[in-house]
Structures are given as C-alpha cells and as structure tokens.
Design a protein around this nucleic acid. Structure first.
Length: 361
DNA sequence: GAGGCGTGGAA
DNA sequence: TTTCCAAGCCT
C-alpha cells in the first residue's frame, strides 16, 4: 500500500487552505475568463447551458467549443427543444467537434430529462451521473456550477493544479481518484460554484502543462511544487503508445449535379451515426461493396492520398473519383450535396481533395 | 485498468 | 513533420 503517491510534504493547515482558496477566488474575479455559459456570482448559470457546455468541453478546447455552443443555443434554446430534435440533425450540427458519442449521449440525456424529470435537471451528482454521457467529472461540474453543490469537480486542469499544490506523484490516471479529499479540503463554504471554474481557469491560464507561470500564481505561496526546479514534472504521465497508420480507400461518386453518393455510418463506434463517403480498409466496420461498384465505373485514382489522424491511428486514404452512369445506388446509399451536409473532418478533407486535387494534410 | 473514441492549434 | 494535447466517458 505504501510507496505510491505519497506526499513528501507536510499536511497543509486549515488556515493555509482557506487563504489559498481566498487568493484563488480573488484572482478569478480579476483574471477569470468571460465565457458565454458563465454568470457572475451570486447568479448561477442556467443548468441547460452548463450541461451543453460541459458535454462539449470534454477533451475539447474552449476556443473550439464557443462557436458550437452559440450555434446549439440559438438552434435549440431549451432542453425541450433539444429533446425534440432528430439525432441525425444533432450529429450534423456537432460535425467537426469530434467524439461523436458525446452528441449521441447528450441527445439521449436530454430526452431522459424531459421524459423522466419533466425537463428539470437533477441537482445531485449521483442522479446526474446516471444519465448517458455524464460521468463523475461532468456530474460534479453541473451540480457545482449550476446548483452550487459541494460536489468534487476534478478534470485534467484541476488534477494538474492539485498534483502540484499538494505535491502528489501518483501517475495518471490513478491520481484522479485520490484527489477527492484534497479537493474537498480546499473547497470553501462560499462560492462553491465559482471555485472549480477558478481552478480550471488557473490550470488553463497559469498552471499550464508545460510552462507554469508561478510568479503570478495565486496559489504559489503554499504550493508544494513551487520549490521544485521544474514544477511541470507533475503530474506524472504514463508513456504513450505509437499510432499505427491504416490504409483505406474512399469513393467520390458524382451525379453531375453537384451531388455525391453518401452513406450513413453505423450508429456506434468510429464516426458513428455520421454521413460519409463509401469507404473501406481504414476502419473496423463492414466494408462497403466498393469493388462491385467500381467494376461498372471508369474511376480515376487520385495520385496523392488524404491523411487524417484519429485518437489512436492515422488514416491514409486513396481516392477513387467517378461519375454515375445512371445506375441505381446500392441500398443505404443516397445522393446529397456535401457542402450542405454535416460531414466529419476526414470526409470534408476527402471532398475537398476530390474537388481541387489538392491534398491539404 | 486499458483501450476506443476526433479535432485543430500550438510547440 | 511530429508530438502533445483540451473542462472525459464507456466498455
């Protein structure tokens, strides 16, 4: 039991922790970010806006999220409106943001909240955690930010800040479970809604992964990593695996009227539920019958390949271009204008390359 | 616990 | 060009 994740530093006193939290909130008032889903204490952000922003912010940067957040709020201003939408239109509005299971789960959660909770968000983290797409972090974030609950909120930023502040050297990802008590000790009685947002802003702006700016950090006085030559060694990260490259091919079949043949991908897994060009070889889904289709066409093969990187592999795609001769499309294929369809990024690159002959990536 | 699951911007 | 991510969740 002993030996992993010990703090080499003495316990911090209640007075030290209270002062640190106070400095943090003062800094937040001065330097915290203005974000479209945020409100000023004592006003709390509407739960629907917190829900929407938190789902979008999972593993995704603030700058990427803001335009999507604005578009979603404009198009679906309430949880009821989102619940009434079709999954396909939600997915296409999400296209480009990535991790599409978030969109599928968010839509399911919206329907559950409307059907089972009369459109009112649960306020306790345990109830929130039961909804699809909402795990320990997001449940705590909604409970704390929208309802001022004293729930633990531990994301990657807060994990990093606390690992340094308390000098905890348990390697990721095991560290996160050990941070619940340290977080709760630092959490003040007042402004429990602002506190996690302040810690996250601190992690994003000051206590950054590579170059923490300790000189201006409001937690520096009692930070246990401050005395390290290089505080950025914390938290301890696991070694990463190399990404393989998978070869694939895609068919851009045109009808001569600006439309292309598309398919809707299977509902789960990679790019699940999204539209795309018929393709094979690069994913683990059943291959489209490309050979049979290509036999009846005079397809041109583009010399350059389209490359795209996913979380755990690189895809290198060969493009086949052809004009339809009037034959029927295979079952499940349909004609659509690619520019007017919410395509994921790989498919956008394929379309772009097919039209210009230029390979951007 | 480990692996699947996107994307585009920064270093 | 390659690496490293950025407010995780699900299986």
């Amino acid at each position: 039991m002993a030996g992993k994740g010990r703090s080499a530093r003495p316990e911090k006193t209640a007075a030290q922790l209270a002062a640190a939290a106070s400095h943090l909130l003062d800094w937040y008032d001065r330097a915290g970010r203005q974000l479209p889903w945020r409100r000023h204490w004592p006003e709390l952000a509407p739960p629907y806006l917190v829900f929407l922003s938190e789902l979008m912010l999972q593993q995704t940067s603030v700058t990427a999220v803001i335009p999507y957040f604005q578009a979603f709020v404009r198009r679906w201003p309430t949880i009821e409106a989102l619940a009434d939408a079709d999954q396909a239109e939600v997915l296409e509005a999400w296209a480009g943001l990535g991790y599409y299971a978030r969109a599928r789960n968010m839509h399911k959660a919206a329907r559950l909240i409307v059907a089972r909770h009369e459109g009112r968000f649960p306020e306790q983290p345990e109830q929130l955690c039961a909804l699809p797409g909402i795990g320990p972090y997001t449940a705590g974030a909604i409970a704390a930010i929208a309802f001022d609950q004293p729930a633990p909120v531990i994301d990657g930023n807060i994990e990093r800040v606390l690992a340094r502040f308390y000098h905890l050297d348990t390697p990721l990802p095991a560290l996160k479970k050990q941070l619940v008590t340290p977080y709760s000790r630092l959490l003040p009685d007042q402004r429990r809604s602002d506190f996690p947002q302040a810690l996250m802003d601190l992690g994003a702006l000051i206590c950054t992964p590579a170059r923490p700016d300790c000189a201006v950090c409001p937690l520096a006085r009692d930070c246990s990593a401050r005395q390290l030559a290089d505080p950025s060694i914390l938290p301890v990260k696991p070694a990463k695996k190399a990404k393989p490259t998978r070869q694939g091919r895609a068919l851009v079949l045109l009808d001569g009227q600006g439309r292309a043949a598309l398919i809707r991908r299977a509902g789960k897994g990679l790019l699940g539920g999204l539209p795309g060009f018929p393709s094979d070889g690069w994913d683990r889904s059943p291959p489209e019958p490309l050979d049979r289709i290509l036999e009846g066409l005079e397809a041109r093969i583009l010399p350059a390949k389209v490359r795209h990187t996913f979380t755990h592999f690189h895809a290198s795609m060969t493009l086949c271009l052809a004009e339809a001769g009037g034959a029927d499309l295979p079952a499940g294929w349909f004609w659509a204008v690619p520019e007017e369809t919410g395509l994921p990024s790989l498919m956008k690159k394929i379309w772009q390359a097919s039209q210009t002959g230029q390979i951007s990536d």
